[in-house]
């Protein structure tokens, strides 16, 4: 195998054979090292949250990756390829020029849900609301809250933690189900919510904040309708699925009628947690 090993020959066949072998071994080992090194540098540069979201997004079925302009009817059948991040999306920018957002009433009603339009919504069912002092409040939207139930437990980041849009910033715990929840915007945590408030975090937004990827105004109606549809679909997996609606209105605690397995599935579908 090596020149100093008994039996080694400096013949063409021998050198060629072992040359190919050592080349293959070197390629395999160096590729592994490269992957390890790139992982290491991802950690060093703080790219981990982005990779986490990229990876989860990559695994979503195409139906769940529909572009926001698909459910408003502008671009039928378009599947998002950039992790629901419209901030850099050329198509989105172009469409904004063609169809500027229409003004919407303060409350939009979808299947009994009264959706306030004074805030920006993230595809992972969180919202961000600009406060007079320039900070942003972050909270769960109506569907998210119903999934979280009456007495949810959250693991929240401590004040001072930087968080990145689309990265898993907090997590929800319910008996039988856990879900990580995606941050809607970039910023630094200023404070976490006192008990019984309708928000979860107060953020100092990043100086380069863009909220272009968040949903607002008139498109919320189509989006919420679609999300309720998706919720029902995710729930119909098991036999004897409970109904989500109680007399046409979404029940307050969705989890109450679900098995832990169903709740788990619902959380995955709604909070985009793969």
């Amino acid at each position: 195998m090596f020149p100093w090993v008994y039996g080694f020959q400096w013949s063409f066949g021998y050198v060629l054979f072992l040359g190919i072998f050592f080349a293959v071994a070197a390629v395999v080992v160096s590729t592994l090292i490269l992957a390890a090194w790139r992982s290491f540098s991802a950690f060093r540069r703080g790219r981990v949250p982005l990779i986490q979201w990229d990876s989860a997004f990559h695994d979503l079925p195409p139906q769940e990756r529909a572009c926001r302009h698909d459910f408003t009817g502008e671009l039928s059948g378009r599947v998002c390829e950039r992790g629901f991040d419209c901030r850099e999306c050329a198509t989105h920018a172009k469409l904004l020029q063609v169809h500027p957002p229409e003004p919407a009433p303060d409350l939009i009603e979808v299947s009994g849900l009264a959706i306030p339009t004074d805030r920006l919504y993230h595809r992972g069912h969180t919202w961000a609301q600009l406060q007079p002092d320039g900070s942003y409040l972050i909270g769960l939207d109506l569907i998210g809250r119903r999934l979280a139930g009456a007495n949810p437990t959250f693991t929240l980041p401590t004040p001072g933690t930087p968080i990145i849009a689309n990265s898993p910033a907090l997590s929800l715990h319910r008996p039988g189900a856990e879900a990580r929840i995606l941050a809607p915007i970039d910023g630094i945590v200023l404070e976490t919510a006192p008990p019984n408030s309708n928000w979860l975090l107060r953020l100092k937004p990043s100086p380069f904040l863009s909220t272009r990827h968040l949903l607002s105004g008139s498109e919320l109606r189509a989006w919420f309708a679609r999300e309720l549809d998706r919720l029902q679909l995710a729930l119909s997996a098991g036999e004897g699925a409970p109904s989500l609606a109680d007399g046409g209105v979404l029940v307050d605690d969705l989890a109450a009628g679900c098995t832990p397995a169903q709740l788990d599935t619902l959380c995955g579908a709604i909070f985009l947690d793969e």
Partner: peptide, 27 residues
């Protein structure tokens, strides 16, 4: 995959899969 190190390594390794596919084909 809840462990970030596993997930990130998987992500980076998967991006280099073409190398392994080629080596695997040769072998």
């Amino acid at each position: 995959k809840l462990r970030p190190s596993f997930l990130v390594f998987e992500w980076e390794l998967h991006k280099l899969m073409v190398v392994f596919a080629l080596v695997g084909t040769l072998l």
